[in-house]
């Protein structure tokens, strides 16, 4: 799948990267170096790198980066757990998933754990920089592939067994409409034009879909923990 990031919106909020603190987590030195070089060349400050999950969690706490560029397939604990850990430690940090194999279940799990961006590794250096900046600004970076996965996940939750304590979240018609357009490759700007909305409104709708997914997941996790007596 040639998921293309939304580069047309790249420059919307890039004024604040004077000292954007970034951490790069990847077990392939080749990639770690390439990403680090690109980020440094663009003026970001790479405050830490890590090759596995344990290192990533430890160095995150020491270096306090604003954005974590994270490969999902790293030695244990994997990218999904790292996402959960670092965001539990610092909810204001942002996680951008940079994945080569695009294993769908893992991507979805990472997004549920709180990652707000997803990019495939074949994306260009410019796309990566744009994505890092947008994620740092609090935007969500969706690929068409991720939009499709999220749409599917909401349908699966709606079709699943009803749980009175944690009802399946639902998307509004507008949110479904926008996600479907993202999934067929339209940029936020193009969507805004097509639906006669402001760019910001489109972004808010997309962000809301992820927030609903993450909220539902958090309630699930808490319930799971209480049921097993892990909350004390």
């Amino acid at each position: 799948m040639s998921d293309v990031p939304d580069s047309s919106d790249a420059d919307s909020g890039s004024g604040t990267d004077a000292a954007l603190r970034v951490m790069v987590v990847d077990d392939h030195p080749m990639w770690r170096d390439a990403v680090e070089r690109d980020l440094a060349a663009a003026g970001c400050e790479v405050v830490a790198v890590a090759a596995d999950g344990t290192q990533a969690i430890a160095r995150f706490k020491a270096a306090r980066p604003r954005v974590v560029v994270l490969d999902l397939q790293i030695p244990e604990p994997n990218g999904v757990e790292v996402t959960r850990e670092v965001l539990a430690h610092d909810p204001s940090a942002r996680v951008l998933i940079l994945s080569a194999s695009g294993e769908q279940a893992d991507v979805l799990a990472a997004v549920k754990a709180g990652a707000t961006g997803y990019l495939v590794k074949s994306a260009s250096a410019a796309d990566l920089l744009a994505a890092v900046r947008r994620v740092a600004d609090g935007d969500t970076v969706f690929t068409p592939g991720l939009a499709g996965l999220v749409l599917g996940e909401f349908r699966r939750m709606a079709d699943g067994p009803a749980e009175p304590e944690n009802p399946a979240p639902e998307l509004t018609d507008r949110e479904v409409e926008i996600l479907r357009l993202v999934a067929t490759g339209l940029s936020y700007k193009q969507i805004a034009e097509a639906l006669v909305l402001s760019h910001r409104t489109v972004q808010n709708h997309v962000q809301n879909t992820l927030r609903k997914l993450q909220m539902h997941n958090r309630v699930e996790l808490t319930r799971w923990a209480i049921e097993r007596g892990l909350d004390g």
Binding site: S2, L108, P144, G145, G148, E153, R155
Partner: peptide, 12 residues
Amino acid sequence: RPPAGSLVGTGA
């Protein structure tokens, strides 16, 4: 039709 065609599924 690579690389121009891309399929987006829902993960199942």
